[in-house]
Amino acid sequence: MTATRRPNRGPKAAARNRAALIAAARDAFAASGYDASLTDVARAAGVGQGSLYRHFPDRLSLALAVFEDSIAELEALAARPGTTLEEVLALVTEQTIASTTFIRLLSMPPQPDPRILGLRERVGRLLEAGLAEAQRTGRVRPEVTTGDLLLAIGMLALLLTELPTEAERTRAAGRIWRMLRQGIETPPRAGPSA
């Protein structure tokens, strides 16, 4: 008896499989972090392990594909005229609350993969323009650097990974940014005395 081969559904199936893998990985990373089971990702996407590895040869490739949408969303916001540093940081914070894995990629240990460096550079460029404008208008201290902001975002992500629910992460993110702003923002000037 010969085994019946499933017909090859071609490029359309490959594109659907890739999209399904990204969606499943987004959910898995949000729920379980960067170390989420890739077997579970493939199963949730309705594909085999082989299909997962044909599209994404390693975990980092899959994570970067998942978070490409997040970067694109940040880039679209930053490209809008009049967007402030505060708005960009607010969106980064929302993305971090939804999935701490995204921002943790930015703060991985030294000697990171060049793809992570590229991701950091893209986020850094998004922050630079807003930072320059905030400093020009006196809202942010002149000594604050893009590296300082990336460090603050990394610290935020690290702390939020310890909290199990989105509600807890949202509350903690608000408290963390209130504290960090004290070191970033220019102190208000005293008004005329009465």
Score class of each variant (00 low, 15 high):
residue 1 M to C: 10
residue 2 T to Y: 08
residue 11 P to C: 04
residue 11 P to Q: 04
residue 14 A to I: 08
residue 15 A to Y: 05
residue 15 A to S: 12
residue 15 A to Q: 09
residue 16 R to L: 13
residue 17 N to K: 01
residue 19 A to T: 04
residue 19 A to R: 08
residue 27 D to S: 14
residue 28 A to P: 01
residue 31 A to D: 12
residue 32 S to I: 00
residue 35 D to M: 07
residue 37 S to Q: 03
residue 38 L to F: 01
residue 41 V to G: 01
residue 44 A to D: 10
residue 44 A to N: 09
residue 44 A to W: 01
residue 46 G to W: 01
residue 51 S to C: 12
residue 58 D to F: 02
residue 61 S to D: 13
residue 63 A to T: 03
residue 64 L to A: 06
residue 65 A to N: 06
residue 69 D to C: 07
residue 71 I to V: 15
residue 74 L to Y: 02
residue 74 L to W: 02
residue 77 L to M: 12
residue 79 A to M: 01
residue 83 T to N: 08
residue 84 T to P: 05
residue 92 V to T: 05
residue 92 V to F: 07
residue 93 T to A: 06
residue 94 E to D: 10
residue 94 E to R: 14
residue 96 T to N: 03
residue 100 T to S: 11
residue 102 F to H: 03
residue 102 F to T: 05
residue 105 L to I: 05
residue 105 L to A: 13
residue 106 L to W: 03
residue 107 S to R: 09
residue 107 S to N: 10
residue 108 M to L: 12
residue 109 P to K: 10
residue 109 P to Q: 02
residue 110 P to Q: 05
residue 111 Q to E: 15
residue 119 L to S: 11
residue 120 R to A: 13
residue 124 G to A: 15
residue 125 R to M: 09
residue 126 L to P: 07
residue 126 L to N: 00
residue 127 L to Y: 08
residue 129 A to N: 10
residue 132 A to K: 14
residue 133 E to L: 14
residue 139 R to W: 07
residue 139 R to Q: 13
residue 142 P to D: 15
residue 146 T to M: 10
residue 151 L to P: 11
residue 152 A to I: 07
residue 154 G to V: 04
residue 157 A to D: 06
residue 162 E to C: 06
residue 163 L to V: 06
residue 164 P to C: 04
residue 165 T to M: 08
residue 171 R to L: 14
residue 176 I to Q: 00
residue 179 M to S: 13
residue 181 R to Y: 09
residue 181 R to F: 02
residue 184 I to W: 01
residue 184 I to F: 06
residue 185 E to A: 11
residue 185 E to N: 11
residue 186 T to M: 15
residue 191 G to N: 11
residue 193 S to I: 09
residue 193 S to R: 12
residue 194 A to L: 13
residue 194 A to D: 08
